[in-house]
Amino acid sequence: MAAPQQQKLKVNGPVAVTANRLSDGVVVWRTAAGGWSTDLADAAVVTTAPEAIALLESASVRHTDAVGAYVAPVVVVEDGTVRPGNLRERIRVAGPTFTLPGALGADLPAA
């Protein structure tokens, strides 16, 4: 499967721009203020292709913050909470869907 970065951009609903933090690979989301946050709730959510492209372009200006930025689907529920839009993004937000081996891994939240 082609990675999201390599796929043609299609915007059929709310989306956000996500990437991995350069120093440690942690998942980050592009904020409306032009920064990055590890909390999806802080993500700038847009609904059109031009907005998404603009957000993606702004994310690519400084290359020492985040790596591999792409547009990811999100879901905005009735109370305004933003949630990942597909299984891939749910796993990126919450971690693997099984209990990890080892004491440290067992403390991770399940998806």
Binding site: D24, V26, V27, H63, V67, R88
Partner: peptide
């Protein structure tokens, strides 16, 4: 990243969903 990616890959370093 375009310059660095081939260098890290030559050393077995990938970027996966949540981490290197």
């Amino acid at each position: 990243e375009d310059e660095f990616k081939p260098l890290r890959l030559m050393n077995g370093v990938y970027l996966q969903l949540h981490a290197y």
